[in-house]
Each structure stands twice: as C-alpha cells, then as structure tokens.
Amino acid sequence: MSERVPQGASEGLAGAPVHLRIERLGKRFGDAWAVREVSLDIGEREIFALLGSSGCGKSTLLRMIAGLETPSSGRILLDGEDLAAVPAHRRPTNMMFQSYALFPHMTVADNVAFGLRQLRPRMARAAIAARVDEMLELVQMRAFARRRPQELSGGQQQRVALARSLAREPRLLLLDEPLAALDKRIRQQTQFELVGLIRRVGVTCILVTHDQEEAMTMADRIGILSEGGLVQVGTPGEIYERPNCRFSAGFIGETNLFHGRIEGDRLASSDFPQPIVFAAGAGASPPSGGEAWLSLRPECVRVHRRAAGDACVAEHPGENVAAAEVAEIAYLGGRSIYHLRLPGGRAMIASVPAAHWGETAPPARGEPVRVSWPAPDGVLLLR
C-alpha cells in the first residue's frame, strides 16, 4: 500500500475563504476501504480536480459530497454547515454525470427546466422559462431549445447537461468525468470552454477525472488519490515540478527515476554511471546513507552530439553528464522524444525541441550522444 502524506491538504486556494471542508472522511464497503482518512479544504470559486486511476476512490468521494453515498467516518462541511443529515435532493450541490443522464423524451429546454420544476415552493412558470433561457444562452444552446438529446452532438449534449446542473444555482458543482464521452479533439476544445463557463458563473467546482492532461488544464489545484487516500495536493505546477513521492512523479507526466543512496550532496546509483549531483532543497532532505530516488522530467534532459569515444565531462559546476546512445526517436513536430540507453543499459527519455539542433542534423537512431542536466532540475524523493 502506498504511503499518503498530503501536502497542503488543509489549505484552500490562496486568498480564497474555505468553502468546503472535508475532515477525515472515509467510506468502507464490507472490509475494504474505498476512501480512507481524507482531509481537504477547497476555496470559494475554486476549480479542484480529484485525479487518480480507476478504483482509487475519487468517484466514491464525490458521491459522498453529493449525498449519494453515506460516509463510514468523518464530516463534510459546506460553509461550516455539516451535510451529514442533509439528503441528496436538499443539498445545495448539483452533479453532472459522465453519461450526462439527459432525458431522451424531453426537449433541451425541458431537460434544463426539470430540476427547477422540482423546487418547493414552486417557481412560477415564467420564472422557470426565464431561467432556462438564461442558461441556454450561457452555454450557447438557445437555438437548440426544441431539439431532443439524440439530435445533438456529444459536445452539445455536454453543454445541455452543464446548463441543467447550473440552473438551480448550486453552491457546489460536482463533475464526474464530464468530458470522457467526447473524442480527443473535441475534448481538448471543450476544456477551456467549460472552465470559462464555470468561472463566469462563479461556482465552486470539484472535477473527478483520470485524465492528467484534463486536470492540469482545467483545475486551480489537484488532489492525487491512490488506494483511497490523498497522496499530494497542490497546483498543477507544484505537482508537476515538485512531486512529493514516486507515485506523484510517475502519475503526472513522464519522468526518469534514478534509485540509489545518499552520499553528501550526491545520489550513488547503479542506474547512472557516476554519482548524481542534486541541489540542496530539491525535494526532501535525507540523511547520508539513506535510500532515495531522483525524478528528472524528460524536458530537463539536454542532448548533445558527440563522437564515439569522446570523454563526457561536466562543463559547469553541479552539472550531471553521461554518455548515451540513441535507441529510438519519436518525432512530434515541434519536438522529438529521444529514448536513450546509458552505458549500463539503463533507459532514459529526453524531450528535445526541434530548434535545439539549429542548422545541423539531429542525431539518428544508434548514434552516440552526451546527456546532461543541472542539479536543480532533479527532484529528490524519499518514498
């Protein structure tokens, strides 16, 4: 089982008052814990992503907030109010499901109006019509008000589902894999559109996703879950650039991980031909002789041409350098991914911009190269 040491879990978005507070929340199904000891503060108007692989507990956590699952332990406080005794239909939350759950026999307008018609005391018919018109205008679907869901594209259905979720003016919007039903091209276009709509309305939002790119693009902060517990909480930049453990480093993006033991300001590793220099404060502060890993993102690896047999010597203090050979190259237009092989056989990945080579031809598969990176670009991890 992975360790869980959340960072910043009790702090909301900087400068925003705490809107939702989760205290030691847990959910058990029989003898198995789906969610365990989760504590988290989410700020007002924040877009917060719960990110993790299938079965990590993120959807169960969202369903407990919505009132669709009863917690086994802990509390959920919205603006200081304990929601434990509040049934799902009376909570000031609204949930948009992955399937959108639109009623096929209703028009777009009737789908958006459905929740408003359930309110007690009843809303006047004219007020409902005005609110539906306002929501459809917000998501740019007024022209489709009389159509039925099956007559819409996936992206249009997603807009209608969002309009329905926002119609009752929830204090908390819950999105469960909201873009999963869209193909990749439309999903990328919709991410920014959805964020713009949420910000325009000014509602606090919790987004559940297994798509790291979606979380990094849409969220102010991300909580990474593994085996029912929070592993790390932070902004996309914090989590990507300063992961707190191997799980976070490997789950968000790609990374090169070198394992070894600490010798002063170096990591002696069988993965690398000589001890790796790391910067003070680059992640953890381990004792000498302790086990550790160094995470290095592919874009931090510099690749240089070299003639076979040339000595690889650091050009700057604190620089790590080694000979390597190009195993494979993936051309991606503006950059290429180099799969490299170090002298001991260890694989290494480098992401190199096309402009890096200038007027010279880049190295081909099988050619010798020199790899390097400055010590501060690596992040030292103790777990």
Score class of each variant (00 low, 15 high):
Pro71Ser: 12
Val195Tyr: 05
Val201Glu: 11
Arg4Leu: 07
Val352Met: 04
Glu367Leu: 06
Ala284Cys: 13
Gly253Asn: 07
Val86Ala: 00
Arg159Tyr: 10
Ala355Thr: 14
Gly344Ser: 09
Ala49Gly: 09
Ile42Ser: 04
Leu179Thr: 12
Gly52His: 04
Gly333Gln: 05
Gly26Thr: 09
Val195Pro: 03
Arg171Ala: 15
Arg24Thr: 10
Ala215Tyr: 01
Leu173Phe: 10
Ser59Trp: 00
Ala124Ile: 02
Gln188Thr: 14
Arg306Val: 03
Arg187Tyr: 01
Arg246Met: 07
Phe272Gly: 04
Arg297Thr: 06
Gly12Lys: 06
Thr235His: 09
Ala181Met: 02
Ala16Asn: 14
Lys58Asn: 02
Phe29Pro: 05
Val371Tyr: 03
Val303Asn: 05
Val313Gln: 08
Arg125Pro: 03
Ile198Glu: 08
Gln232His: 07
Ala143Phe: 09
Gln140Lys: 14
Arg221Pro: 02
Ala14Leu: 05
Ser39Ala: 05
Glu137Pro: 06
Glu44His: 11
Pro287Phe: 03
Arg28Trp: 01
Gly253Met: 09
Ile329Phe: 08
Met106His: 11
Ala143Ser: 12
Pro362Glu: 11
Ile206Asn: 01
Val201Asn: 09
Val201Tyr: 01
Ser288Lys: 00
Asp310Asn: 10
Arg142Gly: 15
Val208Gly: 04
Gln191Gly: 10
Thr107Tyr: 10
Asp183Leu: 04
Glu44Pro: 07
Ala129Ser: 15
Arg242Trp: 06
Pro71Asp: 14
Arg199Ile: 06
Leu382Glu: 15
Gln274Cys: 09
Ala181Ile: 00
Ser351Arg: 15
Ile222Arg: 09
Ser53Ile: 04
Val231Cys: 11
Val5His: 15
Pro287Lys: 14
Gly55Val: 00
Pro287Met: 09
Gln212Thr: 02
Asp211Leu: 03
Leu230Gln: 14
Leu342Ala: 12
Gln7Phe: 04
Arg142Trp: 05
Leu382Gly: 12
Gln191Phe: 00
Arg117Trp: 05
Ala215Phe: 06
Gly237Leu: 07
Glu69Ala: 12
Glu193Val: 03
Val203Phe: 14
Arg261Gly: 02
Thr70Pro: 14
Phe103Asp: 09
Ala126Cys: 07
Ala219Leu: 00
